[in-house]
Design a protein around this nucleic acid. Structure first.
Lengths: 102, 102
DNA sequence: ACATCGATTCGACGTCTGTCAATATGTAAT
DNA sequence: ATTACATATTGACAGACGTCGAATCGATGT
């Protein structure tokens, strides 16, 4: 994925490609369940996927679907530990998104 | 609309209501056409809706639809001047969104 | 090898979303 | 009033999205 420069949205001209790229990442974040997942993982430092269905009140299949989107968008990082999958927030990437918007 | 506190996403626990509210605003931003519109308006200071269809390559109806979403999300402000509608970016609100994420 | 358990993928579903043509609304000038 | 022009709304449609149950994959332990 391409890195977006700081301040693009408000100060410099956004190309069509950059607009699509930024939209893609924002779309990954723009869902209540996914925001909850990011929040739980961020406040915990790291978290096991096995706890998420109960925390967000969704099926394991649904949670897995959302986690995949967040990983593909670069917002979460996945690590396999034995049977369990653990997730951490990629804070740098979130900061990048912020930088583009503000 | 409720105001969201700073740092909620990464440091403090996000309630279901806050997650939905934040998702609503992010969803308004998470579209290439709407990002383009915000970018054009922000870099111009203010802009007339009459120019948008040509700028983003969409129908007048489609542009109007997107502008409505941005205004309802509090990202844009609309002002009628004679026949024309002018738009400005609500930078404070964008900064709030950023503050929640970072 | 086999069984077990966590996680992903598949298939299906209802809903939401982006888009446009057509129509309606509103504003201004004649 | 009527005309002209800018914008909003409506109706319709295709495609994307969130959700779940069922099937599958992967890793562990017996």
């Amino acid at each position: 994925m391409r890195t977006l420069d700081c301040d693009q949205l408000l100060s410099s001209t956004l190309s069509d490609a950059d607009a699509s790229e930024l939209a893609r990442v924002l779309k990954a974040l723009a869902d209540p369940v996914r925001l909850k997942l990011v929040n739980v993982i961020a406040t915990s430092g790291e978290a096991c996927a096995c706890d998420f269905p109960a925390l967000v009140g969704k099926t394991q299949a649904t949670v897995s679907h959302h986690l995949k989107q967040l990983v593909q968008a670069g917002i979460l990082e996945r690590e396999q530990r034995g049977k369990w999958a653990w997730f951490r927030v990629n804070a740098d990437h979130l900061a990048e998104i912020c930088a583009v918007i503000c």
